[in-house]
Simulated scan of single mutants.
Amino acid sequence: MNNLKPIFQEASVVLVGSFNPAIFHPEWLLRNGLISEDDLADQDVEIIHQDIARFSLSWLNIQVQHDKFVARTNDPSQFMPLKDLIVSVFTILEHIPIEKMGLNYNVTYDIGNAEDWHSVGNCLAPKSIWEETLPKPVGMKSLAVESPREDEYNGYINVTIGPVRAKGYGINIGVNNHIEKAEGKESLNPPDILMGNWDAAILFAKKIAENTITKALDR
């Protein structure tokens, strides 16, 4: 399927550690030179509290709890600025202990028609074994695959795939590039990891998604 194009893309960085949600605010980002005045024009501060912070700018969404920090953008032109922002934030907050992190990519493809849409599920999750015991029709709801990392980090690559019927015949694929701190280490270093791995992680995730859909459609 040569004309396969994403209809939705999102990149996110997830950190698991120990955070103070109350400090995370668009004004704090501005004071530290991490965003511009123009970014504040589109801010939507949902809540800033000692237990949770949740706000968005035109290109960015941030949510922070005591044990988790999540920053995401669904604008592909901002994937690199997202990385730069997180590098800058956790260079300033260098003493925050980080135990786990995820470099994530999520994409939805419009398959175009019901026949091809069903063929993806038939390829990735053959129905015959299920049809022996379940009423027909049987369809793939979600599928998850995990693979070990091949670099120096502890962790894994987790891929999820499932149908999307909100608009047309869509297939969504999420790639979670998961990293955990090594035994005996006090913390991960998000700036170093992102600077050395973000570009490759996004390219690798796109390759996984494109190859999976293309091969499934060609079967």
Rank of each mutant, 00 (worst) to 15 (best):
R219M: 07
F204P: 13
I208F: 11
Q9N: 02
N3W: 05
W198M: 04
P148A: 07
E99N: 07
N172T: 12
H66G: 04
G196P: 02
I92Y: 12
I157R: 10
P76F: 03
P137Q: 08
L203V: 14
F90Y: 00
H25I: 06
A53Y: 02
L103H: 04
D116I: 07
M195S: 12
G139H: 14
N154K: 09
S58H: 09
V14L: 14
E180A: 05
E180H: 05
A22D: 08
E186D: 06
D84R: 12
L93A: 08
I161E: 03
K185L: 01
H25V: 08
L217T: 06
Y105G: 01
P81D: 02
N61S: 10
F8E: 03
N197S: 15
K5G: 09
N20W: 11
N61K: 06
V138R: 08
L188A: 00
E46M: 06
I171H: 11
D199M: 13
E131H: 08
E27I: 10
N154M: 09
P26C: 06
I213C: 06
F69N: 01
W130P: 08
W130A: 15
P163Q: 14
L203I: 14
P163W: 07
W28C: 13
D51L: 14
D151R: 13
V16M: 04
A41K: 13
Q43L: 13
G170A: 03
K68N: 01
N177A: 11
N172W: 02
D199K: 13
M101N: 05
M140P: 11
P148T: 01
N104K: 02
N158A: 12
E150K: 15
I161M: 15
H66F: 02
G168W: 05
F79D: 00
G168L: 06
Y156F: 11
V175P: 02
A41M: 10
V14G: 09
A144R: 14
N211T: 15
A22Q: 11
R31M: 15
P137H: 10
R31L: 15
A201M: 06
I52E: 14
A11P: 00
V145W: 11
N61A: 08
